[in-house]
């Protein structure tokens, strides 16, 4: 029993990271109908920003976080201008390929500058964690779960209770109508990319102390996040969160009870199962064909 609880806790912790990346990915999809295949690289960049600021430059942890998030925000804006904006009137395929190109560019740029050696980042706190009988709640996992919860609440408040949030929703639902009302559509999309990059960056900062910071980090997380968003129901915000947690738990349980080397495969097996049985995902509407 204790083992299962312990595994559930660990799974939720790692699942929360997938959920954050999936969330950024869903927000961009809803605003632009573009699947951003570089979303995982945002997380990887967040991790490297932390390594550079806190380890290499020796800045305090909190300052490292602040600088990393500012850098990620700027990066999100740059990404929008360079990768999405020039192709905004084109069909789905060129834009998707362009984001794939961006993910290769980012990964290999980091690889070229920083080399293939994984780096470690210390945890946010020296405090080891809390024990509940046989269950040990690691501090970093607690930080991850708490931060994710806080972000989900903040995001809910932002979208449901601010005019800017409403405008962003309006843009994602009908761009032309939004522009007729005087909403700055280009600005809202810029904001979406910026925010998604920050979300990805936070995920990277959170997960860096658990996994090594390496160039492979982005792809590793992104693939789970993609799977999470399909399982949850493509384009659905609560779905992305539930899907992320589900995958985190599934792969932790799978690694413990079935196989460690194939840990990374469980997410995809779950994904294939959903595609065959329920392609619209947990919360998704039935996929309708439109003339």
């Amino acid at each position: 029993m204790a083992i299962i609880l312990q595994l559930l806790f660990t799974g939720l912790g790692i699942g929360a990271v997938y959920a954050l990346v999936a969330l950024g990915f869903v927000l961009i999809y809803r605003a632009t109908n573009v699947v951003n295949f570089a979303q995982g690289q945002f997380a990887m960049l967040g991790g490297y920003c932390m390594v550079i600021t806190t380890v290499d430059l020796g800045l305090p942890y909190w300052l490292g976080v602040v600088i990393s998030l500012v850098v990620m925000a700027l990066f999100g804006a740059l990404f929008n201008l360079g990768v999405y904006y020039p192709l905004r009137h084109r069909s789905f395929l060129p834009v998707v390929i362009s984001t794939i190109g961006a993910s290769i560019l980012i990964t290999n740029l980091v690889l070229a500058i920083y080399g293939p050696e994984p780096t470690t980042l210390p945890g946010m706190t020296d405090y080891p964690g809390i024990s509940f009988g046989a269950v040990f709640l690691d501090a970093q996992y607690l930080v991850i779960i708490a931060t994710t919860l806080a972000l989900v609440i903040l995001q809910y408040i932002f979208f449901e209770h601010t005019m800017v949030g409403k405008k962003m929703q309006a843009v994602s639902q009908d761009k032309e109508m939004a522009s007729l009302l005087g909403i700055n559509v280009t600005g809202m999309i810029m904001l979406t990319f910026t925010y998604s990059a920050v979300l990805g960056g936070i995920a990277g900062i959170l997960v860096a102390p658990i996994l090594f910071v390496s160039v492979g980090l982005g792809a590793q997380i992104a693939l789970k996040a993609f799977a999470a968003s399909i399982i949850g129901g493509f384009g659905d915000v609560p779905g992305a969160i539930v899907g992320g947690l589900l995958i985190g738990v599934a792969e932790t349980l799978g690694a413990f009870y079935i196989s460690v080397p194939y840990k990374d495969a469980f997410a995809f097996i779950l994904l294939f199962a959903f595609l065959l049985i329920r392609p619209q995902g947990i919360f998704g509407e039935k996929i309708a064909q439109k003339a």
């Binding site: 060129p94 560019l105 990964t107």
Partner: peptide, 19 residues
């Protein structure tokens, strides 16, 4: 070591300028 990064950039540029 930059050549794979240049691949990535090339993909974006091809999509934008020479689909």
């Amino acid at each position: 070591q930059f050549y794979l990064a240049v691949y990535g950039l090339a993909v974006i540029l091809i999509m934008v300028f020479m689909p």
